[in-house]
Amino acid sequence: MKIIVPIKRVPDPEKADKVRISEDGKQLIFDGLDWKPNPFDEYAVETALRLVKDSGADQTANEVIVVSIGPEEATHQVLWCLAMGADRGMLISGDDRELDATVVARAIAKLVKKESPDLILMGKQTVDGDSNQTAQMLAGMLGWPQATFAGRIETPADLSSATVTREVDGGSATVTVKFPALISVDVRIVTPQAVNNNMSPPDELNRDGARFASLPGIMKAKKKPLERLTLEDLGVDTSQRVKTISYSRPAARSGGIILETVEELVQKLKEEARVL
């Protein structure tokens, strides 16, 4: 099975409150912030690795390809995913300000034509833009079925389809998509039993969360193929459909008071805040 996993680098998600805005409101400033793979994309890589583990008569027929569209520095995040265990990397040079969800989807659609994967696995959203659009646009562009917000995935031994439990309002919906298909993953996909390929021994539990790149993994990653491309090479239409005008800071909340007893709390909620 061949899987493409698109990944993006984002400023440290645990420090999203440290992203600054230029005085004219036209730019974001990331000084002092480390860059990390978007957590959902890391989860998608983890999912791909769990799916191909022990699967297929011929392990060498399985391939997990990570692709990022970004600046040269995004090489680090591609290497990180290779160190986690992906087989091959691609970096398409591009600047965030020249990309919107549509341009990204077009670029990946071109790669899909070239690589003919069985499955595209993506994070449901990037935690910088928080848009949650690219996967669905790409599936539409390709005319593929989409199983978004996956919390569980099960594949039959012949790897021809995936049964996906989607986390949706009001409960969980289960769909089966026949390959080629696109799946976008939600946070629960990296809980220990969320991915079942019916090949790995049933008693084998995965760790909770995405795997870390090990030191040997990092050494190996440097020897894995990493192809550099441009949007022009791929013939991608780079016209954007959404234009960023400006950024601003939302109203901040400030800390209030600490109370000693629940009696005081109930009194405040009733008499001061009037919300009880």
Binding site: A101, T102, T134, D169
Partner: peptide, 23 residues
Amino acid sequence: SSSIGKDVLPRLAQSLKAGMASD
């Protein structure tokens, strides 16, 4: 921006060749 809205509208935007703003 319910789960249906999030799932369906980007695919719709794509088929209408439209840009989209989320949430």
